[in-house]
Amino acid sequence: MTFILQLERVRKAFGGLIANKDVTLRVPAGKIFGLIGPNGSGKTTLFNSIVGHHPIDGGSIRFDGREISRLRVPEIARLGLLRTFQQTRIYGGMTCLQNMVISVPTSELGWRSMFSRSPPEDLRRAEDLLDFVGLGPKRHLRAGDLSFGQQKLLELAMALMSRPKMLLLDEPTAGINPTLINGLLDRLRRVNQQLAITLLVIEHNMGVIMNLAEYVYCLAHGELLAEGNPEQVQKDPKVLDAYLGAR
């Protein structure tokens, strides 16, 4: 099995607080993996370390066979590893369609494309992807005027627009209308299968992650507590303790 993302003993501390302590995890290409853990267990810090948001204090992070722990955010993004934010981030002053067309993969663009207009095939793909996440009718609205859930969907569509190899999703269902969650999960599965994008998903909602991921890592207090398929992890007494706050 080839691993697209490999973390070996990743450490990150903020002052005296150890946010990630020797975290080792592997994600094989083409799969959907989950990352769970109670609040403050270091999940988002780990995401930030992976995408180069801050330097790590030790360990190694390999993506697609390449050490990325010293690269900066945009360089890692151009390799095809993208993340979405827990507090959704979109370009609020621009329309949805504009948000989409500037998200085309930058690695394919040279100097010449800097001043050109977006080609029609980009526009078509942008509209298709907006339709895919269900935002087609909103494409000319200012992205900042969308609801939180809609912005979340737009962010996902933008990520897809740039044809990543792998997506790190930080709580994709948080703030989404519960009746729409199943539709979203269905779309995430299609993203994984049809577009062959590997997913690593942070989730709070245990039901969601059990449903979506085929393998789950559980963090607590910055350390890897358990791993395995969803049923195993769910039954693991250590995980239950961590969530219920025993100890």
Binding site: P74, L82, R89, R117, A159, S162
Partner: peptide, 27 residues
């Protein structure tokens, strides 16, 4: 210029430069 991709990227940097970097734009 503002009607081209260049203008859009400038607006993106204005709206959220961290996001633009996270999307891989050569800001």
């Amino acid at each position: 210029l503002y009607a081209s991709r260049f203008g859009l990227v400038l607006n993106a940097i204005r709206d959220d430069e961290d996001k633009a970097e996270a999307m891989g734009l050569r800001t």
